[in-house]
């Protein structure tokens, strides 16, 4: 749907969208130790896409995305399934998580769990679904992809 363009919203979206994506990535990364995770992060990135949609319409959403939403959902699903099956292949149970302690010299120590990879998959699925809703359902019939 293309509404009457609004200068205020256009300029606002320009600063709003990168901030929202950054916050969504933050929520994704801290997900294992604090409130957050792939689903919430994905929804926040979805809100960023919604802002893009409100400012520029469905065409703008598909222009902003680097890859097709359907490919994004498929890739995310594959990553999530691969991580959960990997635990089984390595001898532990399905969905079992491993943890990797990284020592990054002056940045400090961080621990990366395999849950982060799983969450990244969930994130991609949620973002892809929101993008699909916006581009397929949001477009008028004649402009649908």
């Amino acid at each position: 749907m293309r509404f009457r363009p609004s200068l205020l919203l256009d300029v606002g979206a320009r600063s709003m969208v990168p901030t929202l994506v950054l916050v969504s990535l933050y929520v994704l990364v801290v997900g294992h130790d604090e409130p957050g995770g792939g689903f919430i992060g994905g929804l926040l990135a979805g809100v960023a896409l919604l802002v893009v949609f409100l400012a520029g319409g469905a065409a703008q959403v598909s222009r902003v995305l680097p890859i097709d939403p359907l490919t994004m959902v498929g890739a995310g699903m594959s990553v999530a399934v691969a991580t959960s099956v990997a635990g089984m292949v390595l001898g532990a149970g399905l969905l079992d998580a491993g943890k990797l302690e990284l020592d990054l010299a002056w940045i400090g120590k961080i621990s990366v769990g395999s849950t982060l990879v799983f969450d990244a998959g969930v994130y991609l699925v949620v973002v892809g679904l929101v993008a699909m809703v916006l581009t397929r359902l949001g477009a008028r019939e004649e402009t649908a992809p």
Binding site: M16, T19, L20, V23, V27, P35, G36, L44, V47
Partner: peptide, 9 residues
């Protein structure tokens, strides 16, 4: 962080 999210959303 919830405050940030509410302010943005």
């Amino acid at each position: 962080p919830v405050i940030v999210v509410i302010a943005l959303v």
